[in-house]
């Protein structure tokens, strides 16, 4: 006999099993029925809250907005000097070269500036005497 050839005895047995099972279902006590009812009400409440699904749908957009805000904050927090390129350095050099005060200082103490430009270590002991 194959799976497709269920005989009368099988069907009679199945009917008896179903009746026994249904009897056990109808014999459930009141406390258990009450708990099932409460569980069902919770389930129905969860189905009646479609608004709660919106935040999930908006999660990617929220994440993008957060990343953008953080990026903007980092942009503002980073010192402006780090954004300056070679042009800015050239402008700074030009300002030094054109400032008369800087050249005057060099004229007053040429030995100190020669020593400072030689790259000698600070503790080499060969620093010229303080003229200041």
């Amino acid at each position: 006999m194959s799976a497709g050839e269920r005989n009368d005895a099988d069907q009679a047995f199945e009917a008896k099993a179903t009746a026994v099972f249904e009897s056990s279902v109808s014999g459930l006590d009141g406390a258990t029925r009450s708990r099932l009812n409460q569980a069902r009400q919770r389930a129905l409440q969860s189905a009646a809250r479609p608004a709660l699904r919106w935040p999930r749908m908006l999660l990617p957009a929220g994440a993008m907005a957060t990343v953008a805000a953080l990026g903007f904050a980092v942009f503002l927090a980073v010192p402006l000097a780090s954004h300056r390129g070679p042009d800015a350095a050239a402008v700074e050099d030009a300002e030094i070269l054109t400032a008369s005060e800087g050249l005057d200082l060099y004229a007053e103490d040429p030995e100190f500036f020669e020593w400072a430009g030689s790259g000698a270590p600070a503790d080499a002991g060969s620093a010229p005497a303080d003229h200041g």
Partner: peptide, 15 residues
């Protein structure tokens, strides 16, 4: 409809 469906299946599902 969902309430009716769940009420119909809940006891057998529990067993």
């Amino acid at each position: 409809e969902l309430d009716r469906f769940l009420a119909d299946v809940e006891r057998r599902a529990l067993r």
